[in-house]
Design a protein around this nucleic acid. Structure first.
Length: 209
DNA sequence: CGACCGATCGTCT
DNA sequence: GACGATCGGTCGA
């Protein structure tokens, strides 16, 4: 494996087209350096949340609450929130200050620190689906709600480009946003088609799409 | 394999 | 007081 990579910088996260950025994150490495070791996974599934006009976004209508305030920060920080009282979901905040764009990382293919990630997940055997879902991505990599606001330019939590060129990226509607009316149909989810480690719900969604 | 269900709690109304 | 940008288990076919 090629261990040479370039950390994504502020100019990437400050880009103004969150849908394009979500697509560009496919194939990049999401890396954490904490709690006993370095772990990384290749991003294979993302979703764009396109600001105040996107009904599926927590920032729809320009809503600002204590929880969502970080979405209005300048791009390049983490937005992690608790879903269903159990799962921590990791988002990348993009664009500039006061424009609440975010990208949900929904699945990774485990690359480095597989033993550590297995331990965090509680898996006894290594399976391809160690990071096949947004809740599992954070659990495997040791990302928590307390990381909200954490800079992605740090060495503890960041995204890097190692030159890998993903194949067969397709766009589909997002998962679990049926409440968003017409916006639920927007093709804002990106996945590596037929990858074995995309999120479980994706399989049914893929054929609907 | 698909359908269903319980877990679990912060956030917003 | 209701409800999630979910997950893993179980049940039945």
């Amino acid at each position: 494996m090629n261990r040479n990579y370039t950390k994504l910088d502020a100019s990437f996260y400050e880009g103004d087209d969150v849908v394009m950025l979500a697509r560009q994150l496919i194939g990049k490495l999401l890396i954490t350096n904490r709690d006993g070791g370095r772990c990384s996974g290749r991003i294979i599934e993302t979703e764009a949340y396109n600001g105040i006009t996107d009904k599926a976004s927590h920032a729809f209508g320009g809503r600002r609450t204590a929880r969502t305030e970080i979405m209005y920060a300048n791009g390049g920080v983490a937005y992690v929130y608790l879903c269903y009282g159990i799962h921590h979901l990791f988002n990348v905040v993009t664009n500039s200050k006061d424009i609440p764009h975010a990208i949900l990382i929904r699945a990774i293919e485990p690359i480095e620190g597989k033993d550590i990630m297995m331990h965090r997940i509680g898996a006894s055997t290594l399976k391809h689906n160690l990071g096949s879902g947004p809740g599992k991505v954070t659990k495997a990599l040791g990302i928590r709600v307390e990381d909200t606001g954490f800079s992605l330019l740090s060495d503890q939590l960041f995204i890097a480009d190692d030159g890998f060129v993903p194949m067969n990226i397709i766009a589909t509607p997002r998962i679990g946003v049926d409440y968003a009316g017409a916006d639920a149909a927007l093709p804002y989810r990106f996945v590596v088609a037929d990858h074995p480690a995309i999120s479980a719900k994706s399989f049914t969604k893929k054929f609907i799409a």
